[in-house]
Design a protein around this nucleic acid. Structure first.
Length: 561
RNA sequence: GCGCCCGUAGCUCAAUCGGAUAGAGCAUCGGCCUUCUAAGCCGAGGGUUACAGGUUCGAUUCCUGUCGGGCGCGCCA
């Protein structure tokens, strides 16, 4: 609809250029917006305001010229001038309702587009260290990352979901020694407990399992506890496998699936880290100082250079990170989106700098980042401080168990990633029935109930008749609902361009609100067969759009509630 | 001190990347179930968009400064 209006405006501008009222080289950007207030028509354009100077006229006067020059069109009922020079378009009911036909014919594909042209895109998210269970922050990453991938798929991209396991760093040594202590009966606070040890109770669980000789099966490895508390290497492998399995179960409960689990350790074992370091040295972006090897990240916008290789010979974390991202590029991902917590934002500059220093023709802004702000957890009216070391935090599993998967996913994706969010456990639990996600799902279930009711009454919906009789839908709310349904493809497109899946959630809430209002005001199953068939067609279209939107959010669309 | 993200109703958050009278949910108050699911609908109250300037037809949005919050600033990851 917008495209058609833009075409009308373009034709108008062309005719005014032909008549000399507008300079021939004028090319103002034509924008058509949805209106908030229905008294402003169905769509509005600011074209008169942005082009009045070019025509040497006052905005309102110029708007009048434009409106008078507007060609007649079957979709346009009237055009009005309002405010400082807006042109408000009132489209015909038939033009608005035509979208119902489109939706029912396209089904689950409605709203999708092929702007991605099947290109490969990788979304890396969660990437939690295998040193403990997933907490709420990881949950936000899991929800947002998965929605980003789904959104990209809806826009024609071929998305790969990837999880990067930091299984090679110092934190794994900490984990191993912490478990070893627990195996020996040394608890936090006791003599001999490592200063940086992980204090959570789950460490004891790992130790007990190891000493029992359990066999752990995780995504891609299997390991049996040797029951030997002195076997630090065995404990290391066992603990990593154990915690990976726990995380796998958390993600499974959240219905987040990864295509690739990438192990940091493989970058070392396959020599990729060494290769990267060698290239950086050869390219002249490094220097030695104080026994360490430094990377000149300041040449790529960093505020100070960074150590690559420590005096003890080990590499700092961002070196394998650079090797990893080179690997992503080499795997053919021209586009990569990293979804991470904002506490990792300092890595952005370093990774990008490292990639540029490799001189591998990787674009400067590679990769993209979506950084979600921290999640504050409230419980009992108090903030729960997240501390992995102390083990006092709310796990993703707790949240799913208490609030439910759909509600958790909704809560964590319905807000912009850039805004901090407060997750009030008590509120989410005690008022789970007031969670907005149910409001949306309920709209879907209500539409489903209409067809069930029809069946009960021995009636049948004649879809073809309904689509043929859309002109019977004369209620204002019916037109507004149709206009809102027509917006969905645009919402999907914009949300993707902006990497902002929360816009889908907001749209769905508004759509559900329109539907509930209509449903309460106008009965669908009426005696007039043509009107009934048409109304069912409209509500089925609404149901389809809600289902398509919920699919992008990874939330179920129940048939009844 | 420096960098990143923010500051919108009592609370949690939106606002279609500069548009018209800033919107929802929760909470508060008042209505609506013998008719398709009341997990719903309708209505009321609640705002100097932290503050001060600037840019222009027009600013919650862009720029500068101040104040306030979160997160980083390690030869940890």
């Amino acid at each position: 609809m917008k495209q058609e209006l833009i075409a009308l405006i373009q034709a108008t501008l062309d005719s005014l250029k032909a008549s000399g009222q507008l300079p021939a080289d004028a090319a103002p950007k034509i924008m058509v917006d949805n209106t908030k207030d229905k008294s402003h028509g169905d769509y509005a354009s600011n074209i008169a305001m942005v082009s009045s100077k070019l025509a040497g006229q006052k905005p309102r006067d110029w708007a009048e010229v434009l409106v008078n020059a507007l060609p007649t069109s079957p979709i346009l009922k009237k055009a009005e001038i309002a405010g400082p020079g807006f042109i408000n378009f009132f489209v015909t009911e038939a033009a608005s309702l035509a979208v119902v036909d489109t939706i029912l014919n396209q089904g689950s594909r409605y709203g999708h587009n092929d702007s991605g042209k099947g290109q490969k895109v990788q979304v890396e998210f969660v990437s939690a260290n295998p040193t403990g269970p997933l907490h709420v922050g990881h949950g936000r990453g899991a929800a947002v990352g998965d929605c980003l991938a789904r959104l990209l798929e809806a826009n024609g991209w071929h998305a790969t979901r990837e999880f990067y396991y930091n299984d090679a760093g110092q934190q794994i040594n900490n984990l191993a020694t912490s478990v070893q202590c627990r195996c020996k009966g040394i608890a936090p606070g006791d003599e001999g407990w490592p200063e940086d040890g992980y204090q959570g109770e789950y460490i004891q669980d790992v130790a007990n399992s190891f000493m029992r000789g359990d066999t752990i099966e995780s995504a891609d490895q299997s390991f049996t506890g040797t029951k030997d508390a002195e076997d630090l290497e065995g404990i290391r492998h066992f603990a990593v496998a154990y915690l990976r399995r726990e995380q796998d179960l958390d993600l499974k409960a959240f219905e987040v699936d990864f295509d690739v689990y990438f192990l940091e350790s493989s970058l070392y074992s396959e020599g990729k880290v060494e290769e990267t370091v060698t290239t950086l040295i050869e390219n002249g972006y490094t220097y030695e100082d104080g026994g360490a090897l430094w990377l000149k990240t300041t040449e790529f916008g960093d505020d100070k250079d960074r150590v690559m290789r420590k005096t003890d010979g080990g590499y700092t974390y961002f070196v394998p990170d650079v090797a990893y991202h080179l690997n992503k590029w080499q795997r053919g991902f021209k586009r990569v989106i990293n979804e991470q917590g904002a506490d990792h934002h300092s890595t952005v500059t370093r990774v990008r700098a490292g990639l540029q220093a490799l001189k591998a023709d990787i674009p400067e802004g590679y990769p993209d980042y979506v950084l979600h702000q921290m999640v504050t957890v409230m419980k009992g009216g108090e903030e729960v401080k997240l501390s992995k070391r102390a083990g006092s935090y709310v796990t993703l599993r707790d949240l799913i168990d208490e609030v439910g998967r759909d509600a958790t996913r909704y809560f964590l994706t319905a807000r912009a990633a850039t805004s901090q969010l407060t997750f009030d456990i008590d509120l989410a639990r005690s008022q789970s029935n007031d969670n907005p996600v149910y409001y949306i799902q309920y709209a879907h279930a209500r539409v489903c109930s209409i067809l069930r009711k029809m069946k009960e009454q021995g009636l049948q919906w004649d879809r073809e008749n309904g689509l043929a009789k859309l002109d019977r839908l004369a209620e204002e709310q019916e037109k507004l609902l149709a206009n809102q349904l027509a917006r969905f493809p645009e919402v999907v497109s914009i949300a993707c361009v902006q990497n902002a899946p929360h816009q889908i959630a907001n749209y769905l809430h508004e759509l559900a609100s329109s539907f509930h209002g209509y449903y309460n005001n106008h009965k669908t199953i009426v005696d007039d067969v043509d009107l009934r068939d048409a109304r069912i067609a409209l509500t089925q279209a609404a149901k389809q759009v809600i289902a398509n939107g919920l699919q992008i959010l990874g939330i179920s669309a129940p048939e009844e509630m």
